[in-house]
Structure formats: C-alpha cells, structure tokens
Design a protein around this nucleic acid. Structure first.
Lengths: 345, 345
DNA sequence: AACACAACCGGAAACATATCCGAAACTTTC
DNA sequence: GAAAGTTTCGGATATGTTTCCGGTTGTGTT
C-alpha cells in the first residue's frame, strides 16, 4: 500500500528493507531473513535480495544494541599448534576483562569461510568477528557491514582492500632482519623454507629475504626457495631435500619455529652440526624456540600483542568508535640464540 | 537436463531411488521394494539394485536433525600450550558437525570458577559446559543442574562425586607404565617431577610411580619426588636441582612433555648425555615429543579422544539421553623413543 | 489352444517430509 | 507512539518414498 518508489536514487540511509522487498517482489520478512542469515530462504531468492541490497548500499537504520555483554567470534584458518594458542591468549586477555565471550571456530584449511558459517554468525549477531589467517570474501564483508558487525583480520592471508581493518606484523621486515643477520654472519648460500605460497605473510617474508640479498649484492638461487606448510614435517622434508644437495646451503631460514624444528631434525639425521655446519633461523619466537638444542635464533613476532590489538580494535568498532588507524603492523625483532653462526671455512 | 552420470561422486544424500532406478533400468517402485525387503522382486533384479545402491551409498532422504543450534562452554583451568590445543581440536571435531559453537574461557589458575563466571554462563544458557582440569563447586553443580545445563569434567582436577560425569585417562596406569619401563631398563634411582600436588592426575601418576617401585621391590627416595607446574621452566628448575645432587638420579620421569623439554635442557647445560647418562621420560605425547633431540620417550595420552568423548557425552546429555556410562577413563600407552636407555655402569 | 496361476514389475495414487514464503504478532529504537 | 526490523507460525509447493493394484510374462495343466 505504501507507494514505494523503487530505486529513487535517494542515496544514503533512506533505503528500508520494505523498499528492497518491493523492488525484488518479496515480503519484508524474507529480506530480513536474508540479512540475518536465516536458513529458510531459497538460494535464488537470496541472491536476488542480496543483489538489490548491494545495489542500494543498504544499511540498518536503527542503531546497534547496547554493548557491554556479548560475544565475539574468533575464527582460525586452522588450529595449528602453539601459534594459535598465543593468539587465543592475546584475545582472551582483552575480552575477558570486558566481559565478552569468545566463540571459537576453524575453517579447516580454506582461507575463506563457507557461506553457512557466515549465516550462522549473522544469526548469532556477535559483537564482532576476528579472522586469523583467513578473511571474508567481499560479498561476506558486505553482509557483515550491513548488520553493523565489525571485523578485523589478523595476519591477513591475502592483500585486502584498504577499508578492511587488519592487524599484522611487519613480515617483510622480519624476512629482512633474518636474512640480513645470516648475510652479516658471512653466509652466501642461504635457503628459505617459506610458508604456503598463497599466504601473504609468506610472500612478504620472502620479499624481505630477497631485499636483504639485493642490499648485500648477493644473488638468490631460485633452487633454494621452497614453499610448504608451517608444520614440522614440511621443515623436515624440505630440510632433507636441501641438505642432500651437493651444493647445499650454509644457512636455512625457516618460515616458522615449527618448521625450524623439522630442519634441525633433518640436520641431526644427516650428521650436520648446527650451527657449526649449518645455521638455522626460525620465525615466531614460540616458547619452545628457547628450549631446543641448540636454542633457536628466530624472529620475534608479537602474536599476543597482535591478537590483543586486534581485539581492542574490534571492541572499539563495536562501540561505534572509529579508531584512528585501522591498519596496524607491529614490529618484528631478531632474537639471536645458538642456532646461527658464521659459516665454516 | 538431468544428465545422470553414473558414479558421479555426488557424495552423500543427493542420490534418490529414482536415480538408482534410472541407472539399473527399473521403476522406483521396484527399488523401494528392494529397500524394504519385499518379496516380489526377482533375485537377479534385487542383486543389481542392491549393487547400485551400495555403489551410490544410498541413504534414505530423511533429514537428520543437527541437534539444533546452540553453543557449549569450554572452560580451561589455564591455556597451557599445545596440550590445551589438542583438547580444543578434539572438542571442535565433535561440535562443528553438530552445528554447535564453542565458547572458550579460562580461569587463570584457579580450579573452581568464580561465581560471576557461572552467573554469566547461566544467563547465556549454553547446551552444556565442559570443564577441563577444573570443576564446579558442589553449589555451582546444583545451580547448573537446576537449570538443566549438563556438564562434563575432562581430566578432573580432584576427586568428584560419582554423580559428576567425567572423562579422563588412566593416569595411574600411565605412571605405572613409565616407571616400570625405567625399572626394566635397570634404573634404581628414579626421580619424578610431578605436576602440581593439588591436581588429581598428578597424584594418580605418582601413585602409579610408587606402585611400580613396590612391584619391583625398589624403595622410593622421597628426595627424588618433586612437584611443579606442567610448564617448561618447572622441568628446567627441578631438573637442575635434581641433577646437581651428589647422588643424582639416573632417570627422570617428567609430568609432561613440556617439563621433559626443560629437563633435557638442564641435562644439556650440565653436560649430561641423554640417554647415556640420564634417561628422561615425558607425559602426553605431544607432537613436539617426536621431534626433540633425542626424541622423547613418553606416555601417550589420547587427549583428542578424551575431549571428543566428553563432547559427545555432553551433547547426549543435552539431548536428554542418559549415556550408558558417565565416567570414562581412556587408556594410556608407553611410546618408546630415544630418550631412555639402561643406566651407565 | 485355452486356461489357471504365480512371479515379477511398473503406473500412479497416497503418503511423508522438506523447503520456501508471507501475514501478522512482536520487539526495538528513536 | 510510529517506524523499522524480527520472529513465529501456518499454508502452499515441491520432492522423495511407499503402497495398491493391475498388467505382463512364463509355465504347467487340461
């Protein structure tokens, strides 16, 4: 009955779900369901509504509900080892005092959440979402924004647009520091066992690795650049392959401390002394890194701080405050222990 | 348009009896009869249909209910390392398929949740609560029961009444196995760096330790029994103290793999070879245990299974089903690697 | 050759759910 | 209190499954 001129180009904030419903030819109830990720909407209908919502830049007109109590979602690419635990600790340290609960999930390998996961989140209406080593697709970002659910990406897996708040660490700098350290020790054949090729932080570290070489005027042997997972066995496998070469490297820069442990084991099995015959440097500075034999030289990545900063930022966003800056990189530092030394000869 | 390619790897639930009928070349009625064991189907036809059904993994198209949506609380005594991560993984593996979210929290040292924590939980009305290495007080138990919120205690911190559902592992047996292994190797002066004295599993392992000694007729030197946290530095500190004794032990049984790493480091610093001059055995069988130098002999505790079992039990309770048994202990096993050997001399 | 009868199969109605949507009641926000 | 948005509930529809019943085929009998 309400004569609703569809697509009146009115612009900001005036579009209601009734207008959308009118345009698409469905009821307001259906549009509401789409917005809230309810299950009982046909995919085809959902798509049409989504399209219209997107086109009209729909935003909720009513303000958000009071903050104070509530919960946030913390979603991991995968629960890998101590690394994830540090993130959890960092988040908890911020959320617990605020009386905010943490809902945990993992995507099990993929870097973008499946739609049904997002639907569940929309239905639950958390204060915000923290993505770790994974990120929502542009469409999913739009869905979250429409419902005023803020999100922050921690240690982003891929280059994101400037509008996406992220907290990371300076991986490029980390790669630079580690490599520079090895070069300064006199190494000239340095291998890198990087993380997965499709993960941004791996690429950034590799870029730092190359930059350090360039800086020192040392060429990078492409044969000495390897990609793998961040796990122990990847370090072992690649370590074995690298160390069995005739022209084996005198130093290996591992993509994570876990990988470095794998490299150490490979060296041990081949009877290569570390750091005498091989220097090994890790990344992350997990607690175990200080307790290995030899203790691991590594790049300190302030995981707890990163997670805490991200959680703070998200809570600010949830309160409606716009943080000064939404893209933060914390500094990485070199921690020299026992696993690096000048090359033999 | 319904191009029905046979064996298209369609996965689960998508195959209908119509598809089967089409493939085999019979009517849907006939397939239905085969499924329901009716008599009026020729044996030869029946066989063909059954073969096709088997191949397509046919399931009757009745939607299984996913428990409904909801969330459970997973509360830790403390987020310690990889150990906690394993528990989280085990729980997630069960809850995620059921569409249940996990809300995480930790008590930060205490073994009983503070009242305000419980109040928050009660207000949230989760499907259930999983306590790890901590437990609700009797009063809190009553509150939870009043609200029909089931709870399960994993690896209980203290002796609980029979009415409290628990999932643990046979710690006494683990202590026995570890100690027996050392005794069989010929060790007579065996130290134990146990977990905290007030934690049940520590006491159970210690009891197993004593039982093995008794069994072998070897006295336990009370000076060689130490208590500490489950962390790395506790292992290091106690390891140092024990190994600096004039009558130092020839073997150390650590309360956790992390502690064992600390002991290894202490031995290394003192120039004691493992396992030549000292045998070390850990507990938990974390992933790192296989990658240390030397690789750690340890007791395998099926943490993931424990957590999964507990989650299952809790979900059953939440559904109103009474599980057959509410007190489960999973078995522990000895994993022999490189850190144990007969004593020198 | 005609018939009886049983075994076997399929058409289609009956039945059982799952899916999808909107009206109306309800809640929240200003 | 009105507008915006959400939730509940029942009905319409579509789809998968079972059952009834009649048709076809083959075999044995007269």
């Amino acid at each position: 009955m309400t004569a609703q001129s569809p697509g009146d180009g009115s612009g900001t904030g005036t579009t209601t779900i009734a207008a959308i419903a009118g345009e698409v030819g469905v009821s307001v109830a259906t549009v509401s369901k789409v917005l809230n990720g309810r299950a009982d909407v046909a995919p085809e209908t959902r798509a049409r509504v989504e399209e219209s919502l997107e086109r009209h830049r729909y935003r909720r007109r009513t303000k958000k509900k009071p903050v104070g109590t509530g919960q946030i979602d913390l979603v991991f690419h995968e629960f890998d080892s101590e690394w994830a635990m540090e993130i959890i600790r960092g988040v908890e340290a911020v959320t617990a005092p605020a009386g905010v609960d943490v809902v945990l999930s993992q995507l099990g390998g993929t870097h973008h959440p499946p739609q049904h996961w997002l639907d569940a989140v929309l239905a639950r209406r958390p204060l915000g979402v923290l993505f770790v080593l994974c990120s929502p697709t542009p469409g999913q970002q739009a869905q979250l924004r429409r419902q005023d659910i803020p999100f922050v990406v921690v240690d982003t897996d891929s280059a994101t647009t400037a509008s996406v708040p992220t907290v990371g660490s300076n991986n490029w700098n980390g790669g630079l520091l580690a490599t520079r350290h090895l070069l300064e020790l006199g190494h000239r054949r340095i291998a890198i066992v990087s993380g997965p090729e499709d993960v941004l932080c791996s690429r950034a570290r590799l870029a730092g690795f190359r930059a350090a070489h360039e800086e020192a005027g040392v060429p990078v042997d492409p044969d000495l650049v390897r990609y793998g997972t961040f796990y122990l066995d990847a370090g072992y496998t690649h370590g074995m392959a690298l160390l069995n070469r005739a022209d084996r490297p005198t130093a290996i820069f591992a993509g994570s401390d876990m990988q470095a442990l794998g490299v150490l084991r490979a060296a041990r099995q081949l009877g290569i002394d570390v750091p005498g015959g091989l220097s090994v440097i890790g990344y992350d500075n997990l607690e175990v890194a200080a307790w290995t034999d030899p203790a691991l030289t590594t790049i300190d990545q302030p995981l707890r701080d990163m997670a805490g900063t991200a959680a703070h930022m998200m809570l600010d966003l949830a309160r409606g405050e716009q943080p000064r800056t939404t893209r933060i990189d914390l500094v990485t530092e070199l921690v020299v222990r026992e696993s690096t030394a000048p090359p033999a000869g």
